[in-house]
Amino acid sequence: MKITTAQLEELYHEESLTLDSKELSILEKGEWEQDHKFQTAELIFTDGEKFYRGYIGREGSPFTDWTYTSEFSPDLIETIDEVEKKSVTIEKWVKI
């Protein structure tokens, strides 16, 4: 699936979006991940048949306004990955 950065941001803020006669809706929103003055957030969404993952970005700080990626790259097309939900087991060392 291809979607513009602005459309993906609209989906993030509005929770749903009609694109190519398909209704996209958000299933999960990830937390904003900080990288200096830039943040990204993961979105998991569906078109009713398949599931997809995309990321949106913004820069700035909580003390100023955020500038979303679409404001400086409005025509950027994001490639969205088709995904499926699976259980994953993680092993790690813990203090005993």
Rank of each mutant, 00 (worst) to 15 (best):
M1A: 10
K2C: 02
I3E: 06
I3P: 09
T4V: 01
A6V: 05
E9V: 10
E9F: 05
L11W: 04
E15G: 00
S16D: 06
E23G: 01
L24R: 03
L27Y: 04
K29G: 03
K29E: 02
W32T: 03
W32G: 03
H36A: 09
F38L: 11
Q39A: 01
T40C: 09
A41R: 15
A41F: 05
E42H: 02
L43C: 07
L43G: 08
I44C: 03
I44P: 03
F45V: 06
K50H: 10
F51T: 14
Y52N: 02
I56N: 07
I56V: 15
G57R: 07
R58W: 02
S61Y: 00
S61F: 00
F63Q: 10
T64C: 12
D65M: 04
W66K: 04
W66M: 00
T67Q: 12
E71G: 03
E71T: 05
L76H: 12
I77R: 06
E78C: 10
E78G: 02
E78V: 14
E78L: 15
T79G: 09
D81G: 08
V83K: 12
V83Q: 12
K85W: 02
K85G: 00
K85N: 03
T89R: 10
E91H: 14
W93Q: 15
V94F: 08
K95L: 14
